[in-house]
């Protein structure tokens, strides 16, 4: 199943709205199953069993464990558990977008929608840089772990400051160098051409896309109505 990027963005928006309106765990589990189904239909590598397991852990913690443990445990952890748990449907949607959307698709679709070129470049690079940033942060962490940069410093505030500086400095230098090198490479590939690029990866929205949006829109409207009327709480 191949969903249009616009469909995926609209689904994420609507699911996020449902997640903030909904307070019923059954409805939430239903959302998780639905999005999980969309992920499975989009390809093997799209579905994330880890997320589903984590969601189950959080949901069980909130609904089965908190009621039976001492009150202070729930006091300490409830906000953490609830905030993370209620965000899972949105995270599943973001994973669906990330694992099934190519940057060329984003560029082609937004170009067709007449989004300004600068914003398209920003969004494309934003998507492009996230995995690269993860690699960089990992490399810096590894370098820091081998060198104990704060050794010999007794003042705890200074230790924190030195550690922070040692994370931030190479990260910033690397980020700026990446920006410079990426820009140079992109310029040699004609990114500054004012004429619209070929939208090779552009596809029109299919009836399936519209159908799916309609279903989730109805679901969202249902959630809003239920919330307004105070049912399904």
């Amino acid at each position: 199943m191949k969903l249009d990027i616009r469909t995926k963005i609209i689904i994420t928006l609507l699911i996020a709205t449902c997640a903030s309106l909904n307070t019923n765990v059954t409805v939430e589990i239903g959302m998780m199953i639905f999005i999980g189904g969309l992920q499975l239909m989009s390809g093997k590598k799209v579905f994330s069993p880890v997320l589903v397991i984590l969601y189950a852990v959080f949901a069980i913690t909130q609904y089965a464990i908190f009621p039976v443990v001492p009150g202070w445990v729930s006091m300490l952890l409830s906000m953490f558990v609830v905030n993370i748990r209620s965000f899972f449907p949105v995270v599943m949607c973001i994973v669906l977008i990330y694992r099934t959307t190519r940057i060329s698709e984003v560029i082609a679709t937004f170009t067709n929608m007449k989004v300004p070129r600068g914003i398209i470049i920003t969004i494309a690079i934003g998507i492009r840089y996230i995995p690269a940033l993860a690699v960089e942060m990992r490399a810096i962490w590894e370098a820091m772990s081998v060198r104990n940069v704060a050794e010999g410093i007794k003042n705890p505030f200074k230790r924190v400051a030195v550690n922070m500086e040692c994370y931030i400095v190479p990260l910033f230098i690397s980020s700026i160098k990446t920006a410079d090198e990426l820009s140079a490479a992109a310029m040699t590939r004609g990114i500054e051409n004012p004429a619209p690029p070929t939208c090779r990866s552009y596809r029109k929205m299919s009836p399936g896309d519209f159908g799916l949006i309609a279903v989730i829109l109805l679901f969202t409207a249902g959630n809003a109505y239920a919330r307004y009327k105070g049912v399904l709480l």
Partner: peptide, 9 residues
């Protein structure tokens, strides 16, 4: 090679 690609694919 890390910083000359605009796309991921």
């Amino acid at each position: 090679p890390k910083t000359q690609f605009f796309n991921i694919d």
